[in-house]
Design a binder for these strands. Structure first.
Length: 272
DNA sequence: CACGGATCCTGATGGC
DNA sequence: TGCCATCAGGATCCGT
């Protein structure tokens, strides 16, 4: 479900409100993706200092140690200043603090909650160590991006999704960015010319930044920590529009499958 | 090492 | 209405 923009919008929704809070209780539901001995008693009494994002992970820094949260395909976080209703069957993690309660709801349970003593601890490095550069940071540079594409022979769509060149681009925004750049998703990343790499570089930044501004996409079930929906889907150029006319040239949008994932593109606007 | 495929889990949807 | 197959915004692991 959540790609970088949804995770960032989620973070913005509760980061300031939870900062400085003391953890008072933790409730665990069904096991998530990595049931690495998360000990609730270990967390109680600690203070949440800040909430950062790395790729699609949220990092809750505490006065000692940090929690890594991932929303997987179907996860969402809610923050309630007053308290929490009885947990439903998909509420798998509650963090009750002095300033309010954070709740993770995740029907498919591909998400994760992992504790690490430090960002350099093995549990954190295992999850964060191979992540690529942040696309909305000043560290995202065209030279390195193009070099990263050059050394990958796989289709550019799958290289974007892999997250080791640049993080945060999920299935929706990969199709959208490639449309914006006029590049066929099946094209080998290594064969992308410098000018086209530059267009893709800008497209990735623009599509993600726009989605953050718009409050995230809601092609299915995204809602922010206030329970409000985003409205990126109103702006999708290709995603989910197979058979419908391209918004630029009118040619029917085509859907293909790459690595078990749906890809959408305009056969006329996007050249190999 | 890079790549393609299978896999974890549950819910929604569409065909018969 | 029931049943079954397919698909879903992610990421890891395994075999080649």
């Amino acid at each position: 479900m959540p790609e970088l923009p949804e995770v960032e919008v989620t973070r913005l929704g509760f980061a300031d409100r939870i900062a400085g809070a003391r953890i008072e209780a933790v409730r665990l539901g069904k096991p998530l993706r990595w049931p690495l001995g998360l000990d609730p008693l270990l967390l109680v009494g600690r203070t949440v200092a800040s909430v950062r994002r790395r790729g699609k992970y949220l990092l809750l820094d505490m006065d000692r140690g940090l929690l890594l949260l991932h929303l997987g395909m179907s996860g969402s976080l809610g923050f309630n200043s007053l308290g929490l209703p009885e947990p439903g069957s998909h509420d798998h993690f509650d963090l009750v603090t002095s300033r309010g309660s954070l709740r993770l709801n995740d029907p498919r349970r591909f998400g994760a909650v992992v504790y690490a003593d430090a960002e350099t601890a093995p549990e954190a490095v295992k999850l964060l160590g191979r992540l690529g550069v942040e696309p909305l940071s000043e560290g995202f540079l065209l030279d390195a991006f193009h070099a990263g594409l050059k050394r990958r022979k796989a289709p550019v769509k799958q290289v974007l999704l892999a997250g080791d060149v640049v993080v945060g681009v999920g299935n929706i925004y990969a199709s959208e960015a490639l449309f914006m750049a006029g590049i066929r998703p099946t094209l080998s990343a290594a064969r992308i010319s410098r000018p086209r790499a530059a267009r893709l570089f800008e497209a990735v930044r623009e599509v993600l930044a726009l989605a953050v501004r718009k409050g995230g996409s809601t092609l299915r079930d995204f809602s922010n920590t206030e329970g409000q929906s985003g409205h990126f889907q109103l702006e999708a150029m290709v995603y989910g529009r197979q058979g419908q006319p391209c918004r630029v040239c009118g040619t029917p949008i085509r859907q293909i499958r790459q690595g078990q994932r749906a890809t959408f593109f305009c056969p006329s606007c996007q050249k190999a």
